[in-house]
Design a protein around this nucleic acid. Sequence first.
DNA 1: CGTGTGACTGACC
DNA 2: AGGTCAGCCACAC
Length: 126
Amino acid sequence: MSRLEKRNRVIWQQIAAIPRGKVASYGQIAELAGIPRGARMVGRALGKAPASLQLPWFRVLNARGRISIPGSSPYYQRQIDLLRAEGIAVNDGSVDMQRHRWAPSLDELMWGPGAWSEETDETEEQ
DNA sequence: CGTGTGACTGACC
DNA sequence: AGGTCAGCCACAC
């Protein structure tokens, strides 16, 4: 298991942990995954995530609450629809982050997916 | 091995 | 409300 694959797993776990009706930014997911300034890696990890994981990919927006998928992509409108289906208002491709940003509780930070990833990094097996 | 690119970000215009 | 720019780092070429 390469270091990269491990990182992707942690990223996927964090994305999976975003509650219904809430959103997170790429940078936020990166930090939760223990990868400061790793926003771009979150985007890549998301792109190569197995469909079988059923990740709530649509709950991930850029730091300004904007949808990062090009408007030309069919997934753009799909993302808007999925967000609205959860009661999140989307105007002109952007979401009010102040209102919908996921703020993990201390408990989630301590015991949620990816917590202690630094420590378990070397010993984690699967 | 060098270079360009991007489902990113924050700082500055 | 817009655009540019330097970091960022895995990846494709």
